[in-house]
Amino acid sequence: MNIFRLAGDMTHLMSVLVLLLKIHTIKSCAGKSYPCSLCFILLESSSGISLKTQELYALVFATRYLDIFTDFISVYNTIMKLIFLGSSFSIVWYIRRHKIVRRSYDKDQDTFRHFFLVLPCLLLALIINEKFTFKEVLWTFSLYLEAVAILPQLILLQRTRNIDNLTGQYVFLLGAYRALYILNWIYRYFTEPHYVHWITWISGLVQTLLYADFFYYYFSSLKNNVKLKLPA
């Protein structure tokens, strides 16, 4: 464990917390007799969270962490895996089933089809993998799928003209997590013998590059002190 990996995991954890905080805010708004300014904004505009992306992440974690009961690496790893599995499935549950949270989800804008991402990733995992076993192919599939799972969210952000502050922070934290993982790989490459993982690196690099455009607009909105808006 190095500082980049730890910082990456922590930003990933923070991104999940930001989403849960957002859901909590939407929930707590129900039945209030006084207007809560944040909830009002969240309910008036759609939440801007892509259910498609959240479902893809749930699938990513479910296929990647199949080893949770068979291979023990560390208490830290096991706890983090449980957190990511639990949070991703509960976020999907909230958006689909929770009475109030569901209402803030804009279904008509979030039109990306899972199928277009899942199928190519599955085929690619069957062809390009380190070992042709059930667990290994699914693990590779989870890496490919994670690389592109943010696409429905980025498309939704571009469509939603008014980007909610928390949604912007969420995407920024996810992008930061990926960038820190690349630093972690560079560090490990120079400090650990035989540390070469082409599949992980290339899919991780592709994933980080998808955030480049968002980062550009995120930082320029910070610099100019204006609300984040992506060009149409």
């Binding site: 995991d9 690496i73 013998p193 992980t200």
Partner: peptide
């Protein structure tokens, strides 16, 4: 020490 896979990451 060789590590065939990066399964120690999250």
């Amino acid at each position: 020490k060789s590590q065939p896979l990066a399964h120690d990451e999250l």
